[in-house]
Amino acid sequence: MKRIVWLCSCVLLLFSSCATLNVTHPGLGRVKKYDFAHKDVPASFNGFTIAFISDLHYKSKFTEKRLRGLVKTINKLHPDLLLMGGDYQEGCQFVNELCACLSEIKTPYGTLGVMGNNDYERCYDDIVNGMRTHGIRILEHELDTVRKENSRIIIAGVRNPFDLQANGVSPSTNLSPDDFVILLTHTPDYAEQVPIPNSDLVLAGHTHGGQVTLFGLYAPVIPSAYGQRFRSGLRHTTAGIPVIITNGIGTSRKSVRLFAPSEVVLIRLIALQ
């Protein structure tokens, strides 16, 4: 009996220590940083930083206090650009408050986003109008060009990636292979299900990193047709295109996270010359 009690205590201690291992920001699990080197990154964009967030699901476990903490955290990181991957709300009554608060994130090159499945199901017009009012652009199978000195990078935003009949041609299709192109989509599955020519990096959310995982190694439930393959982190499509999948910020269904900490992704571009 004593051995069983001792074992249970060790397991509880392990869960406790692992659950707080990456908690370095109030109300936020972690900032996950990537250095991304590519031959198409222009020299003038060497060191350019992009903050990426997704799946706020405001308000869920992601409360008003945590929203304020998120804004403060991102502003302290001083990114050049903020990109957002959708699923912004858990109720239309929260949209104006969310958009106003997100507008307090200040970056030299602004904020761009795409919509998630929750956003197509409800509050679509509220979100688009709210974001526009506060200077945030939503890309619906559209491109945005970020210019620095005499060079550029391109952000290609995917409209409803679950409707492949309508959106099965990637917005990156007609771009130049020489451009550095970031494809922004709510779900990573899109990058595998649809040809995405000329895309150099894909940013996606939707999976929540599994939201509840076994020691961060396996998620019993994950909203992807590819199981654990695109759960979280840096992965690659069959065609070899890199995909960064964020755990996201908020929660859905159950207001709990276990070994899938909420996160801000910070990407530093490196030019290979």
Rank of each mutant, 00 (worst) to 15 (best):
T49L: 03
I138L: 14
R231P: 06
L82R: 03
F162V: 11
P220F: 15
Q89H: 00
A156C: 12
R122Y: 08
R147W: 07
I241Q: 04
A219M: 04
L258Y: 07
A191K: 00
G91N: 02
L112A: 10
R253F: 02
R68W: 11
I270C: 08
N160C: 08
R66W: 05
D200K: 12
G27P: 06
H186K: 12
G209I: 13
K72E: 10
C18M: 15
R229W: 14
A51R: 02
D200N: 13
I154L: 14
I154T: 03
A225F: 07
G85I: 05
T133A: 02
I50T: 02
K32H: 12
H78L: 11
A225E: 14
L12Y: 00
H186M: 12
K65T: 11
E192N: 01
T107P: 03
L201R: 06
C123R: 02
V221Y: 09
S17E: 02
L102S: 04
E192V: 14
C101T: 06
T187I: 13
T213C: 13
L266G: 05
N22H: 10
N118Q: 14
Y58H: 13
R253V: 14
L70Q: 14
L201Q: 12
K39Y: 06
P161E: 10
D144I: 10
V95R: 01
H134V: 00
Y190G: 03
F94Q: 09
S151E: 07
Y109C: 01
Y109M: 01
F230D: 01
N118K: 09
Y120E: 04
D144W: 04
V128Y: 03
G248S: 13
S60D: 11
N46R: 09
E149L: 13
V221C: 06
I136A: 02
N46A: 11
I50C: 05
L164I: 13
T213G: 02
E121D: 13
S151Q: 13
L184K: 08
L139H: 00
E142Y: 00
R137V: 04
N167Y: 09
P188S: 04
Y88V: 12
P197M: 10
S151W: 12
V181N: 06
M84D: 06
R132P: 01
G209N: 14
Q211I: 00
K254C: 08
S172Q: 08
T213A: 09
P188L: 00
A204E: 09
Y34N: 12
N150C: 13
I182C: 05
V11Y: 08
K254P: 08
P161C: 10
L70R: 00
A156H: 00
S16D: 05
G157C: 07
G227L: 03
F52Q: 11
Y120Q: 07
N96G: 06
T63G: 00
Y226G: 02
D55A: 03
K32M: 04
P223V: 10
K61F: 08
I105E: 00
I74V: 15
L56N: 04
L70G: 01
I105N: 08
P261V: 09
R132A: 08
P177L: 05
S199T: 15
R152G: 09
L7Q: 08
P220N: 11
V202Y: 01
E140N: 15
T107S: 10
H38Q: 07
P26C: 03
H134I: 01
L14W: 14
